[in-house]
Structure formats: structure tokens, C-alpha cells
Nucleic acid binder design. Sequence first.
DNA 1: TCGCGCGATTGACCTAGATCAAGCCGCGAT
DNA 2: ATCGCGGCTTGATCTAGGTCAATCGCGCGA
Lengths: 246, 246
Amino acid sequence: MPHSMPPADLSLSAIKTACSNCNLRELCLPFGLSDQEMARVDELINVRKRVKRGENLYRAGSRFESIYAIRSGFFKTDVLLEDGRDQVTGFQMAGELLGLDGIGNERHSCNAIALEDSEVCYIPFARLEEISREIQTLQHHFHKVMSREIVRDHGVMLLLGTMRAEERLSTFLLNLSQRFTARGFSPAEFNLRMTREEIGSYLGLKLETVSRSFSRFQEEGLISVQQKHIRILNIPGLKALLEHRN
Amino acid sequence: MPHSMPPADLSLSAIKTACSNCNLRELCLPFGLSDQEMARVDELINVRKRVKRGENLYRAGSRFESIYAIRSGFFKTDVLLEDGRDQVTGFQMAGELLGLDGIGNERHSCNAIALEDSEVCYIPFARLEEISREIQTLQHHFHKVMSREIVRDHGVMLLLGTMRAEERLSTFLLNLSQRFTARGFSPAEFNLRMTREEIGSYLGLKLETVSRSFSRFQEEGLISVQQKHIRILNIPGLKALLEHRN
DNA sequence: TCGCGCGATTGACCTAGATCAAGCCGCGAT
DNA sequence: ATCGCGGCTTGATCTAGGTCAATCGCGCGA
């Protein structure tokens, strides 16, 4: 048994930002830590920042120093090429990490932009490495998070490489639904935080195609759409779109 | 300066597999380590395995225990869905790591298949985590490698989401050329280890489109193709295909 | 309250690349 | 040397989704 630590002298703001108080801790970096380990992580994470809708949390090319845990809100990340081509690489919600792309080259390789007023916790990366050298559980969990990000990207590659428009959109909706569910929200009813164009960019489609596919889903009674408000009426029906292939 | 260590009592096979002797060490995991640190890593990596052309190094669903460094040869990784859909997620060559996808779920999420007779070094993952808790440089370098994998995947997403067929193929050829160069081979002349179908799967194209694009590049004097043998005749010309967009 | 503007929808048409089909080529096995 | 076959090339046609264009309508700011 690890012996108990003296209680840390925490300022009010530190208490406020403590992971140990955060209701997202089971979704976030400090998953599965003991109380004692959690106390170490609380030391690590003591700065929070609000990011307004439309603001960048970081930009491609800017110096990498920290990763970020989303405390509340909704983000998109995108990459862009010199020639103006760009692509949304992901949408991130509460409990997910941002900034892992920056580790490899000491610079961020994409932009992270808030799609609604949001709040993030700073996780200074050098400190994270330091503490994860001491706490095996944290080290291992961090590796898992990075690995899952790679697996997720492979899933998107599969989507972009092999699926037709309606399959992509169905996958997208089911994925959102599942993530909202994991956060205690309705699996069937939610507001999209992104535009048709952003959805299209992520899915490798034009906004008109996204719009048309939504309309078709509605005609078929799979969902009801009204601007950004989505209600999923027939989850098995959406899943069925993905089966019976080739 | 690190002080010198007593010579370790290494068996012949251990000497043979030592990273410190490996001419790929500047491309591989133990990049930038001191002699002393390198000795620790040598302890970690002491099993090599030959994988024949066509054989699986690992399969999706199999238990994850180890990552692998490619000592020689050439691999592809692919993911497949229940419905038969599949997609090549990458081609890997000497000095690159395989298996990072398995960390997140204790199981591999893709298949790794040798495209020519190859040899890999086993890197037992639990031991890697252990040692990287002690050697900061190694820890940090490993994180960089994972992060770069994420960035690479974002690049593929951009390719799949926004590029036309010839742009994809040009990007592919330039990428291969650049990686061969980094390994001391000719940037302009090489043999493809994969079929048109595998290239197509990776690039989200059908094999016929790959073939036609190769032919067009040849007509335009950008490359010469003869089955798997490729000679790049005009690198700036290939790069130019990617510019002047939108 | 009104009007403006961005985002979304819908239609008509076009095109890159998929699909289908017919050879061809090079290589390994007999 | 020959056969057979997997991989590649090339042609003809088809189509999903892109492009262009016209409206619509919600939300926001004056």
C-alpha cells in the first residue's frame, strides 16, 4: 500500500480546477488513478482557459507546449495546405484531448477552433511526461489515448476511402450519438455545432451532398432534421445502411 | 559526457540484434540516445523474427504485447470491416515501427502483412514503458513517434478528402521517393513492392485508375513505369501537380 | 420590428472516376 | 519450352457526387 500524502496546499483556483472534482474524469486523461495518483495529476493541471466560439485554441505552426483537455464545449481541428485546400480532421467534445499532433515536431500541425463557447484545461506536456515517468498507470493510459487516436484516424481513412456519401453521413451521426450517450446526453436528439460545410469537409463531401443526404434520410424516416437540430428516429435503419456491402 | 559502462555480457545473438550496431538506429526508436542509454535499449530488444512475403506479422483482433521495428523489408497494414470492405492504412519500410494501433485496446486493430521477405525486432511493450520511465530521452522520442503517426494519418485524410486521382498518386510517389532517399536509396528509381490494387486501396482509388494515372504520367514524361519498376524523371513536375489549387 | 446575411435547401447539368469487359504481359511451375 | 494465372493495361460506358445557380429562412443587430 502506498503511504498517504500530506494534503497539498491548494489555492481556491487550484481546487476549482482539480481533476479529482471533475465529473469528466472517467472520460479524460486521469482514468483509473488512485486517490494518491490523482493528487499528483491535480498538481499538473491547474490552468483553465475559456475559448469563445470561433476562437482558435491553437494554430498550425505555433509552438507546442501543452495538450488540452476539453472541460466543456465543442471544437473542430483542421489542417490546411499552402494551396488553400483544407480538411477538418475531427470534432472534439468534453473529456477529449486536443494537441497530440504537436508533440512530434514541437509545433502544432493543425488548428483547433471552438465551435461553441468552451473551456479547456492546460496540461503542460513536459510536466505530463515527468509525472508519467512516476505514475505507471498514467503513463500507460496516456499511451492508450494516443493509440486510440491512431485507430480513430484509421477509421476515418476507411470511411473516406471506401464509403459512399450516405454511409459516411450515417457513420458520422451514429458516432456523434454514441459520444453524446457516453456523456449522459440523449442518443437520439442533439444540436449539431458545425455547419454542413464543416461536416462535408470532415467527410470528404460537398455541403450540398451533406444537405441532400440529410433530406433523403428524412424522407425515409430515419431522422428528422431542422437546421442544426437532429433527431434520430431509426438507429437500426441508419446502421443498416452500412451493412450488405460488396 | 556519460562515463563508460563495463561491457555487458552479451550473447552472440544479443550482439547481433543490438540497436547500437544497427545502421537504422537514426531512423528508428532509439534516436538520439547516449551510449549508456543505448545499452539499456539493447537489453529491451533482443528478439528478431523473419517474416516471409505474404505472411502476417500480426492480425486484427490478436492480443497486443509488442511493437515491432522493421529491420529490413516492406509491410502493409490494413483494416477490414465485417462487410468485406477493407482499406490499406499504410506501407512501412525499414526503420519504421509497427503495432502502435494495438496499445489502446490490448488488441491489434489492423493486419500487418509483409510485402517482401522481411525482418523485424520485437519491442515488448511493457518493457518499453518500463525503460522509458527511466530514460527521458527515450520516453520523449517514443511520444514523438506516436504523434507523428497521428500527423501522418491527418495527411492521408487530407489526401483522401480533397485530392483528385493524379494528385494522390503524385503525393504517393513523392512520399516513397523521399523515404527511400532517407534510407540511402535512389530517390528516382525503385521497385514498388505492392500491387496496383494495394496502391488503389491506400489512395481510395480503383486499380484501373491507378494504372491509367501511371500511364498518363508516363505520356507526360514525368515518370517511366514498367510493371513494378518506377523511374521518376521529373520531380518538380510531379510536385507541380499539387500546386495551383482552388 | 425590420431587414440583412449566412447557412441551408433544391434543382439542372456535368465530369472524374467507377464499372464492365477484353486482352496482354511476365513469371513461376511443370 | 509451354502453360496458366495473377497482375496490368486499355477501351467503352455509366453514375455518384460535384458544380453552378436560384431561392429560402432563421437569427441577429440596428
